[in-house]
Each structure stands twice: as structure tokens, then as C-alpha cells.
Deep mutational scan, measured.
Amino acid sequence: TEYKLVVVGAGGVGKSALTIQLIQNHFVDEYDPTIEDSYRKQVVIDGETCLLDILDTAGQEEYSAMRDQYMRTGEGFLCVFAINNTKSFEDIHQYREQIKRVKDSDDVPMVLVGNKCDLAARTVESRQAQDLARSYGIPYIETSAKTRQGVEDAFYTLVREIRQH
């Protein structure tokens, strides 16, 4: 089974770092803004072998026109913010609204991801993020692309959301 996953969120929150940590098991430290990259990885989730087709997208506003296209083809979405960047957390709402509009559905598989949880300088409390996820009816997972904490959990949870859909 193949799953088309799309990673969305503001610029600099760590979308590529999360994806590369999942696929290649290493942490990319330097920031190089993405336009669009796709990665494929075969994994076993709950005993089922599946192929993850992951689209890593641009957070930069100037590429926002490309969003409709990949939102149409994606089956599930990782909505990523950084726990030390309140603005990126506030941006999640717009991504969710755009996904709902493009998919013409209120019920699209999504996982809210709070990345950079290895950093002490948190400005978005776990509780705020949990409340937001609960209001959307989606899971919330904290990750660190640096330490790998929660990385597999985030992507695998999204696959489970798609399966249950």
C-alpha cells in the first residue's frame, strides 16, 4: 500500500529536517529553504509493509500558489509548527483551512506536530497545542528532528489516521 503524505507549515519550522531524519536517519543542521522535494521510503507499520511517498513543501509565502496542487494529491498532512515560534503555531489554522477548502472536506487525515521540542526556549505550551488538536479532532505529537524523538511516531500516526479514514 502506498501513502501520499504531505508536510506543511511555516518556513523554518523543520519540515525538511523531520523528513530527512525519518528517511535518512540524520539531522540536517543548516537551513536551506525548500521549494519542493519528495522522498520515498518502505516501512512496516503495524505489520503492514507500506511505501511512504512524502512531499516536503515550501513554507515560504512566495510558493503558496503551489499549495493547491499538492493538497489535492496528498492523502494525509503533517501540519508542523516549531514550539519556539508562536507565529508558526498561529499559521497552522490557515494551512488547515486551505487543506479543507482544496479537499472540499472537513475530515482530512492530519496530525499536528510541534517540532524542536529539544529546545528550552518554548513559547507554545503543550497544552495550547493539545487544545488546538482536540478542537480539530486530530492527534498532537511533539518531535525533535535533532534527537529523533517522536519522528517515526508522527509519520506513522498519520498513516494510521489515513487507514482509519
Rank of each mutant, 00 (worst) to 15 (best):
K146Y: 07
Q42G: 11
A154R: 00
R101W: 04
R67P: 15
R148A: 02
Q60D: 05
Q21D: 12
D68S: 06
S144W: 01
F81Y: 08
L18G: 03
A120P: 09
F89R: 04
E97D: 13
R101G: 03
M66P: 12
D107S: 11
L78C: 07
L132E: 01
K146D: 14
K4P: 09
T19F: 00
T86I: 00
R40V: 13
I138A: 09
K103M: 10
V44E: 13
E48P: 06
Y31W: 08
G59F: 03
I162L: 14
T73I: 07
D106F: 05
T86V: 11
D104V: 12
Q42K: 04
N25Q: 14
D46G: 10
A65M: 06
Q164W: 04
L158D: 00
S105G: 12
E125A: 08
S144F: 04
V6I: 07
D118I: 00
D106E: 10
R96Y: 14
G114P: 00
D53E: 12
L18W: 03
E36P: 02
I20E: 02
H93I: 13
S105W: 05
V124L: 09
T147K: 07
F77H: 00
E152A: 13
D153F: 02
Y95D: 03
Y140S: 02
N85E: 13
R96T: 07
F77M: 02
R134V: 10
K41T: 13
G76Y: 07
G114N: 08
Y31F: 06
T19S: 13
G59L: 02
L78Y: 06
D56N: 01
Y156W: 11
A58W: 00
A129E: 03
F77G: 00
I35S: 04
G74I: 06
R163S: 09
G9T: 03
D29V: 09
R122T: 14
I54L: 11
R127N: 11
D56I: 00
S38F: 05
S16F: 04
C50E: 07
V8T: 04
R40F: 09
H93G: 11
K100H: 09
G14D: 00
G12V: 10
A129K: 01
E75M: 14
I35P: 03
K146P: 12
R72A: 07
Y156V: 12
L52Y: 11
V102C: 15
E152I: 15
P139I: 07
Y156H: 13
H165W: 08
D29F: 09
E90G: 09
P139H: 12
K15H: 03
L78E: 00
G9F: 01
T73K: 10
H165C: 14
S126A: 09
S64A: 10
T57F: 01
E90Q: 14
V151G: 10
C117K: 13
Q98G: 07
R96P: 10
R148I: 12
E75F: 06
L78R: 02
T19V: 13
C117N: 15
D46S: 07
K103P: 03
E36R: 01
L55H: 06
I23L: 15
A17G: 12
I45H: 11
Y63D: 05
V8L: 08
D32V: 04
E2T: 04
I141L: 10
Q60F: 13
A154G: 05
D53A: 01
T49W: 06
G11E: 08
Y63E: 07
E161W: 08
F89M: 11
T123Y: 06
L52R: 03
T86G: 10
M71N: 10
H93V: 15
E152P: 12
I162Y: 00
E97P: 00
T1I: 09
V13Y: 02
T34P: 03
I20N: 01
I138C: 09
R40G: 07
Y39T: 02
C117I: 07
K87P: 09
L55T: 09
S135G: 10
R148F: 14
V113H: 00
I23P: 02
K15Y: 01
D106K: 03
K4R: 12
D131Y: 04
Y140T: 00
D107L: 10
E30T: 08
E90Y: 07
A82V: 07
E48K: 08
I99D: 00
D68R: 03
A58E: 09
V6N: 05
A10T: 03
R160N: 11
D68I: 00
Q24N: 11
E30V: 10
E90C: 09
L5C: 06
V111P: 00
F89W: 13
D107N: 14
D104P: 08
D131Q: 09
T147V: 05
R72W: 01
L18P: 00
L158K: 03
V80T: 08
K100E: 07
Y140V: 08
T147N: 10
E142V: 03
T1F: 05
Q128P: 04
F77C: 03
T143I: 12
D104G: 13
R134M: 07
Y136H: 07
Q98N: 03
S38Q: 05
M66R: 06
H93T: 10
V13E: 06
V43Q: 09
A154I: 14
I141Y: 07
G76E: 02
H93Y: 04
D106S: 10
G11P: 14
D32Q: 07
T143E: 00
R160P: 00
E97K: 08
R148K: 10
N85L: 05
Y95L: 15
E48H: 12
Q69K: 03
K100A: 10
L132N: 06
G9K: 03
S135W: 05
G76H: 04
E2D: 11
S126P: 12
Y136Q: 10
Q128L: 12
I83M: 15
D153Q: 12
N85R: 03
A129H: 08
L18S: 05
M110G: 00
R72S: 05
K116S: 15
D91L: 15
P139L: 08
I45F: 12
A133P: 00
Q69R: 04
K15A: 03
L132S: 05
G150N: 06
K15P: 02
